[in-house]
Amino acid sequence: MSFKLRPEKIMVYVEATEKSIIAAYYAVCLAKWLNASLIAAYVVDIKTLKNLTKAKIFIELEEMDYEHDLEEDGKRYLNHVKELADNKNIGIEKFLLKGEVFKEVLNTVKENDVDLLIMGELEEPESRRDFYYNETELIFRKSPCPVLVVKEDNSAKTMYDNL
């Protein structure tokens, strides 16, 4: 994937966290300034749910119940991000995906020719294990396009409010 000086397609990776919303504020601002198109993607972590059933911590009914809950979380967060974009007259495409988180995100980046991925602040890694298994770390390190990590402070929200 070639590096573009002015990204034309931006994707914001959304989790059910405040960090993702902060990333979304910045993504909307950047899409507006650069006249870029915007995608928001959330992944229902099916792999972990299946692993919990395999480990017998979940029963099958519970796996379905939690899948539904995660899907509802995803819809709620994606709708909120869409509202943020709509408020600033930015078109946005929502992707509610299911599967292994980092693989789904990276596939979406590739399939949609995304040239900038925006995500919320990452957890401080405490061991090499975190580097290898944390999904957001994997997205950050394995993304085929440049990644912009938005720091958790008020500046993205202030920029958005002033847009």
Binding site: E15, A16, T17, D45, T48, L49, N51, L52, A55, I57, F58, Y66, D69, L70, E72, D73
Partner: peptide, 16 residues
């Protein structure tokens, strides 16, 4: 709480 599935699943996964 009912609307905290992500964290709940993540914690259970770490216990596993």
């Amino acid at each position: 709480p009912p609307h905290s599935a992500g964290q709940h699943v993540s914690a259970l996964s770490n216990i596993a």
